[in-house]
Each structure stands twice: as structure tokens, then as C-alpha cells.
Design a protein around this nucleic acid. Sequence first.
DNA 1: TAGATTGTTAATCGATTAACAATC
DNA 2: TAGATTGTTAATCGATTAACAATC
Lengths: 214, 214
Amino acid sequence: MTDTNSSKIGKLVPDIVVSRLPLYLRTLTRLQEEGKEVTSSQELATRLGFSSAQIRKDLSHFGEFGKQGTGYHIAFLKDQLKTILNLDMMWDVALIGVGDLGHALANYGRFTRKGFRIAALFDSDPKKIGTIVNGVTVQAVDGMIDTIRQKGIRIAILAVPVNVAQKTAEKLVEAGVRAILNYAPITLTVPAEVKVQNIDPIAHLQKMTYYCKR
Amino acid sequence: MTDTNSSKIGKLVPDIVVSRLPLYLRTLTRLQEEGKEVTSSQELATRLGFSSAQIRKDLSHFGEFGKQGTGYHIAFLKDQLKTILNLDMMWDVALIGVGDLGHALANYGRFTRKGFRIAALFDSDPKKIGTIVNGVTVQAVDGMIDTIRQKGIRIAILAVPVNVAQKTAEKLVEAGVRAILNYAPITLTVPAEVKVQNIDPIAHLQKMTYYCKR
DNA sequence: TAGATTGTTAATCGATTAACAATC
DNA sequence: TAGATTGTTAATCGATTAACAATC
């Protein structure tokens, strides 16, 4: 088995496995920062709170990246994971909604460092349109579809009020967006080929209070 | 079976079921805003993209909330879910790290509306200490443990730089915090009785680019 | 009553883990 | 070689779904 650039033919990789790859990547980067060059499924497992078997199984969906007796060369495995996740390129991202949250996201330096460039900002508030945030001019939502199409943007971050989130998502889909990171507390309805990931701090807090009896 | 205030005795509710309860709550609130008084597992399922069987099974862990032929009374089910999730009270929350993200979170009105009051703000930057954000004075991280203990705060939102996140989490645990919403891109190591939920937008984006071949 | 929908059971499906031969 | 660790298989574990009796 030498196919390391894509998943094994005929086998679909479970979504939950894909979810863990960014965590592996993150952990490898940290290990590297600590000066390590080689790691093992056991070390990764300890760091992440997973089992070592799970890590080996997950990676086995994509190829063979380790050496028996030695483990994994960190720089090599990082590169492989980046390739698998299509992170060997810079992705342009549209950010819709430049309120407090949108503002914080537009200024979040980690996006750029990790290969996600905020290439366009949109808002519907006339007071915000035309202002410059982190070097990018805020545009009217009215022209959003054209701009996103023209720039070929495939990823959007949705930070608009919940009452306009679904409508805005539909515009994004029309504009050709394939992935939406949704901060609005609502389940978006989009075509199956469009990926949505939701971030809702309230939902996370509410889950934890379940365990906080008092 | 009339035990509606807690899970069935002797049966532990799977964590993944607990994760979905806040989404049910959110959807019920939306249905209510649309003027509905009654709903069904099928309607909830369609809204959420789940199966109706899953919704009925999830709810069955906690009691019987519906009526055959009719469905669920929305206000009643909402109340029950709130009780199950310990949301029938106001929770004090400490927010650590008042950078761009922390600032946005401190100003996020939805926390208060959903029963989470930002009761204390902490930062280590002398320029921020003493400033007031959304009516709360930013305090030095130095006195954090005492303040959290004194106020009996059980929930913390961690929005500090990644390099101090683990150290800060340990202080929070020492102060008696039982639940941490972690925005730093690192897997925190905490005692088993402390719940951690992670929010990492980069991880979400990286998951989606896996499916964005190009 | 007839139609609708629940709560639950059993079957199915999928993910995790334990164990180990292979081999560095 | 001896020790360590991989990749994979098979077993286990757990979650989801289909189906339906109960009943509103």
C-alpha cells in the first residue's frame, strides 16, 4: 500500500476520522515546537486523550506514514496530513457580518498563518460599508454574490444575526460557496454538496451545565 | 415511567445524547417564535437534519414528554429540557483573556439572555486591567483564583493565547471551576471531573477543505 | 372511529479497541 | 539481536434506525 495522497480507492473515509485529522496536525505542530522530530501513536494519543489504536487506524485510511519500532517522522506526517486536507495552498475566505464577532475574526491572525486569507468582508449596515478592517474594505451584502463569484471564493464564515442567517447562506450557495463556518445559532438548510460547520458557544455551555449539578 | 427530572436510574445518558439537547432546545425556541405551540419528532428531525427515531430515543432517556397522535407541547418540552440541562438558574461565568475575541465574547448579548452572566473578566496585560468592558472591570490574572473561589464561579471561558492556556486552565481548576469553554487551539489536560469543550475555527475550516477538492 | 404519533424493542450499522504478526 | 512500534484483523462496544404496539 503506497497510496499516500488520497484515501484508499473504494473506501470512503468516515467523517469522524476527517474531523480528527486537524487535531493530529495541531498536535504535531506543537511537538515540533517543543523540538521533537519523531513521535509515536502512543505519544499523540496521550496528548489528545485518544487511544493509540485509534490514531493508527485513522491514519491507515490514507496510507502508511510510520516505521515499526520508530514511530512517525513529525515533519513528514505533517506534510502528508496537510496534503490530505488540501492545506497545501492558500484558501480565500469571505466573512459576512462585521459586528463584534466578525471584527474579532477579521483580526484573528491565526487564519492567515494557517492558510486562510480573509479576502472579502461584507455587511449590510451602511455605517460599516466602506470601513477598512485589517486591510480589507467592508462591502455591501448587495454585491456579495457577484464579488464571491468573481473572486472564486469557496469558503465563507457566517457571522450575521440569526434572523438573516438562512437567507444569507442561500446567497452564499448561489455564489458558489462550498463550505460555510456558521456562527449563527441555527441549523442551516443547504444542498448536500455544501459543507457546514457550526460554532455555538451557548450550545457548548449548555452541554456542560448538564454535568454541573448544583 | 414518570421520572422526568433526571435520567433513568442506573442508566447513564450517553454524552452524544446530551450534546444534542441544546440543539433541541434551540429548535423549540425557534418554532415557538414562529407561533407554533405543538411539534412532532418528525418536524424537529426535519429542522435539524436528524431522524425522528433519534429524537424520540434521545428524549426517552429522560422521560416521556409527548402524546401519541399529537406530538410535543413546545413550551412544556422546553421547560423540561431546561431543567434537565440545569438551565433553570443563572450561571456566573469567568472570562479569561480580554483580547479581540474576549472583547467580542464579553459583549455577546446572547450569553445573558441564555442564563450565562459574565461575572468576572481577567487579563494579564496591565493596559487592560482596570478597564471596563460591558459593565465589568477587568482584573489581574494574579488575583483570579481568589476571586473565582470567592464568587463561587463554576464555569470559565478561556480566551488566552495558546502558550498560557494550559497553565491558566490549571489555575481555574484550582479555583474550583468545573467547566471550561476553551478557545485556545490546544488539548487541555484537566482532572476527569472537569468538563472541557473546545472551539477552534481553524480545525473546522481544515475539516471542510478536505471535501473541497481543487 | 380513523389517523397520527409516541416510546420502546430488536436489528442494523458503524466506530473503537485489543491483540499480534511484521519489521524497523 | 532485543526492544519498540507499526498497520491490520477480528472482537467488542455503542449508536442509529426500522418497525410496531400502544394510545391520544
